[in-house]
Nucleic acid binder design. Structure first.
Lengths: 92, 92
DNA sequence: TTGACATGCAAGTGACTACTTGCCTATTCT
DNA sequence: AGAATAGGCAAGTAGTCACTTGCATGTCAA
């Protein structure tokens, strides 16, 4: 599995996660359109596709092929690792 | 303020946070020694110092000059942003 | 004050990475 | 079948980043 922290280190990837938080189950083209309209992302379709690959390697996104489209789902569970690794002090 | 996610994207920086979690309030030399012994980090003192600068810019570490040493403290509060930005589903 | 200790600053370098470009595969509709 | 749609693969490029090297600053003890 890829590096969770590396996956989060890119702003475009974080905006992709934002978009999937707003509406889960989007295709590559939908994500490209909405990132362009709502966040001014001018990256190409291939760039977004590569970002989705990084997010999927990190376990933050899963995808399933549906006909000629690929639907992407958000998974926030891996983020728990961050909080558990450096727990907040003063609560024990 | 610097980028929280960029600060977390480097493994050496994450190990520094681990070390400060184990024992808060270490100096640069203490961190270098313990990183080398416990994690096999071979980076130079200057490399660790630069990492501490990035962590401090991100608000994850604060430091105070004490005599001829600088003491570093861990702050986990900024990590809450991550969980709040992409909340876990199915709990509302 | 002088030497030793702990850290700070800044330029240079090699590796990594996000992005583009070009072409290819798979699926749907007429 | 043939055209259009949605996506996949791979090489090349420019910019970023972690790291080192060399020198400078500040602090403490004798």
């Amino acid at each position: 599995m890829g590096d969770l922290y590396h996956a989060l280190s890119d702003q475009t990837r974080r905006l992709i996660l934002d978009e999937l938080t707003t509406q889960d189950g989007q295709s590559l083209f939908e994500l490209c359109s909405r990132l362009a309209m709502r966040h001014g992302i001018t990256s190409s379709r291939q760039a977004i596709s590569q970002h989705l690959g990084v997010l999927e390697d990190a376990g933050l996104v899963s995808s399933e092929r549906v006909g000629r489209t690929r639907i992407h789902h958000l998974h926030t569970a891996p983020l728990r690792e961050i909080i558990e690794r450096w727990p907040a002090p003063g609560k024990d």
